[in-house]
Design a binder for these strands. Structure first.
Length: 494
RNA sequence: GGUCGGUUGGCCGAGUGGCUAGGCACCGGUCUGCAAAACCGGGUACUGCGGUUCGAAUCCGCAACCGACCUCCA
C-alpha cells in the first residue's frame, strides 16, 4: 500500500482511504468507560487502540480533536425495561453517593491510563453534564416522529424508523431477523416493540440520579449520550468513531439511528472497532467474570498471573497484535512481550550513543518507507514493530562496527525510532529507568563503580569483579561487559 | 436458530497467488576470564477434503472445530 492512510471502515467492511472532512482538522470520538468498576485488560486495548489512532493522526499533521466520554449515568444493568443503572447499583451497595462512585472509578481509570501512556483526550465529557443536550435531541427525534412517550419514559420507535431509513447497516442486521429473534415480552413492557430502546427513563421513587424533563423526572438512555456529546463537540458530521466490537450492536447502531432521526443524517464517516481480548479462547468481559484488572496485572495479584507485568509490557503486548484481531491472554505471551520490549528499548538507548561515519551500508529511507506503509495500512502496528525489530538488528550491528551510517543517515534513524517508538506507539522506558536516567548522581556512581571493577579485571582479580557484579545484580542492576568497557542497565522490574 | 469472523510452527502473532514477517522459547557457533548482551547459523507452519491455476497457506466450494454479536460487556 502506498503512503496514504487507509482504515478499515466497519460500515463498508473494507479498507478505505482516509479523507478528512475538514482538513487539517479531524474529529475523533471513542466510547469511554462506564465508571462503576475498575478497568480491565479489555479497556486497555480499546484505549490504547484509539490512543494510537489519535497519535498517528497527529503525526500525519492533522489537528485532532479527540473526544472520549465518561458514562456516569444511564447505563443499565439489564434489558432497558427492567435494568437498574449500573452506577446506582454500585452506590447502593457501597452506601455512597452515585457521584462518589463515579469520581472514585474515574480517578482510578485516569491513573491506569497514565500508567499505560494513553494520552488524555482533548475533551472528556460526562453524560451527567449533558442532560440538556440529550433532552434536546430527544425532542428533535420526537418532532421527527421517531420516538414516543409511554408512562413518562420515551422510546425510540425502531420499526417506524426502519420504514424511512435502514436500521442495522453498521452491524449487518436486518430488522426482520432481529424481530424473529427477540424473546417475547410478557406484556408488561411499555415499549411498542421489543427492539425499541429507551431515550428517557422515568425514575422510580428509589432512583437517586434524576433530572426534571418534559416527560418525567428521570434519566437519559445509554445510547443517547454519545449522539448528543459527539454532536456538541465534533459537529453533526465528523470523521472517526471508535469503540470495542461489543459496542457495535446495539450501542453504535442505536447511535446512528438517533442521529439520523434527530438531525436527518448519519454523523460518522469512518467507524472503527477494536477486537476483544480473549482468555482461554473466550472473550474477557465483565459479564463472564473472567477479566483481569489492570491493577492486578501491574501488581501480579491475580490467581492466573505468574508475575507482575509493567504497564509498558501490557501496552506492547496489545500493540503486537492488530487491533481488529482477537488477542489471547497468557503469561507466556506477556513474558515474550516483556523481553521483546526490553530488546527494543535497549537498542534505542544504544542508538542514541552511536556516532556517524563516512559511508552508509544500510537503507534508512527504505526502512522509513516500510514503517509508514505499515501504519498507513489500517494502523498495522504488529508489522510496524516487525520492521522496528529489523532496525534493532541494524542498531546492534552498528554498535559493533559491522555496519556503518553517515551522520546524516544516523540522524534520520534516530529521528525515526524516537518518532515511532515514543510518539506513535507511546512506548517509554519504565519509570525506574527514566527516573535514574543515564545522567546525574546514579550515573556518576555507576561510572565510578564500573571503573573500579574494570581495574580489578585488568589485574585479573575476577573475584572482586564478580563480587561487584553480583552485588549490583542484587540491587537490580545488570552489568554488561563490552569490548570497550562495561555498560549497565536496570533489570526489568517484576 | 440468525448474522459475522476465525483456524498459521513449542507459544504469541503478521501476511499473502510464486519472494525469510517479527517477537519469545529451543539448538549450534562467534565474542568473553566467566556470565549477560550482541552477532552469525539452524529446525519445526499455514484445520481437513475437493476445485481454479504453470504455481495456493493465500482465490472458490464443502466439512470439522472455535469464537463474537443477537440482553449488559472495551
Amino acid at each position: 500500500m502506498s503512503s496514504e492512510l487507509h482504515i478499515h471502515n466497519t460500515l463498508s467492511r473494507e479498507k478505505e482511504k482516509f479523507v478528512a472532512l475538514h482538513p487539517p482538522l479531524v474529529g475523533l470520538y471513542s466510547c469511554g468507560p462506564t465508571v462503576y468498576g475498575d478497568a480491565h485488560l479489555g479497556h486497555a486495548r480499546q484505549a490504547i487502540t484509539f490512543d494510537v489512532v489519535y497519535r498517528y493522526l497527529m503525526h500525519l499533521g492533522y489537528k485532532v480533536r479527540y473526544v472520549r466520554n465518561i458514562t456516569d449515568v444511564g447505563h443499565l444493568e439489564n434489558d432497558a425495561d427492567e435494568g437498574e443503572d449500573k452506577i446506582q447499583v454500585k452506590a447502593r451497595l457501597e452506601e455512597l453517593e452515585p457521584m462518589e462512585v463515579v469520581q472514585h472509578y474515574m480517578n482510578r481509570y485516569h491513573d491506569n491510563m497514565r500508567s499505560l501512556e494513553v494520552l488524555p483526550p482533548s475533551i472528556e465529557p460526562r453524560a451527567s453534564g449533558h442532560i440538556i443536550e440529550q433532552q434536546e435531541l430527544i425532542r428533535k427525534i420526537m418532532e421527527a416522529g421517531f420516538a414516543y412517550e409511554a408512562g413518562g419514559s420515551v422510546y425510540f420507535d425502531v420499526e417506524k424508523f426502519n420504514r424511512h431509513h435502514p436500521y442495522g447497516q453498521l452491524s449487518g442486521r436486518r430488522i426482520e431477523d432481529l424481530l424473529s429473534n427477540t424473546r417475547s415480552l410478557d406484556g408488561q413492557s411499555e415499549k411498542r416493540n421489543p427492539l425499541d430502546f429507551a431515550l428517557w427513563k422515568k425514575a422510580d421513587p428509589t432512583h437517586i440520579m434524576r433530572w426534571p424533563s418534559a416527560w418525567s423526572e428521570g434519566y437519559p438512555g445509554w445510547h443517547l449520550e454519545c449522539s448528543a456529546m459527539s454532536t456538541k463537540y465534533l459537529g453533526m458530521e465528523f470523521d472517526i468513531h471508535g469503540g470495542g466490537m461489543d459496542l457495535l450492536f446495539p450501542h453504535h447502531e442505536c447511535e446512528i439511528a438517533q442521529n439520523v432521526a434527530g438531525y436527518g443524517k448519519p454523523s460518522v464517516r469512518y467507524w472503527m472497532h477494536n477486537n476483544l481480548i480473549t482468555i482461554n479462547g473466550q472473550k474477557m468481559g465483565r459479564s463472564l467474570n473472567n477479566f483481569i484488572l489492570l491493577d492486578e496485572l501491574f501488581t501480579g495479584d491475580h490467581e492466573l498471573l505468574e508475575q507482575a507485568y509493567a504497564p509498558m509490557t501490557v501496552r506492547f503486548f496489545i500493540l503486537q497484535a492488530h487491533y481488529r484481531s482477537t488477542l489471547d491472554f497468557s503469561n507466556e505471551a506477556l513474558k515474550a512481550s516483556e523481553k521483546g520490549l526490553d530488546r527494543l528499548l535497549t537498542a534505542l538507548d544504544r542508538l542514541e550513543k552511536l556516532k556517524g561515519g563516512k559511508t552508509s551500508t544500510l537503507d534508512v529511507d527504505g526502512l522509513a518507507t516500510r514503517c509508514v506503509d505499515a501504519m498507513n495500512d489500517d494502523l498495522n502496528t504488529p508489522v510496524l514493530i516487525g520492521h522496528l525489530f529489523d532496525g534493532v538488528k541494524w542498531i546492534n550491528r552498528l554498535a559493533e562496527g559491522q555496519e556503518n551510517l553517515t551522520a546524516d543517515d544516523l540522524g534520520k534513524l534516530k529521528f525515526l525510532y524516537s518518532d515511532y517508538v515514543h510518539n506513535i506507539l507511546g512506548l517509554r522506558p519504565s519509570e525506574a529507568e527514566s527516573a535514574a536516567g543515564t545522567e546525574g548522581l546514579s550515573s556518576g556512581l555507576m561510572d565510578l563503580i564500573l571503573e573500579i571493577r574494570s581495574g580489578a579485571k585488568a589485574n585479573k582479580d575476577f573475584q572482586t569483579a564478580d563480587q561487584i557484579r553480583d552485588a549490583l545484580s542484587a540491587l537490580g542492576i545488570v552489568v554488561k561487559d563490552r569490548k570497550d568497557g562495561a555498560d549497565w542497565e536496570f533489570k526489568e522490574q517484576a
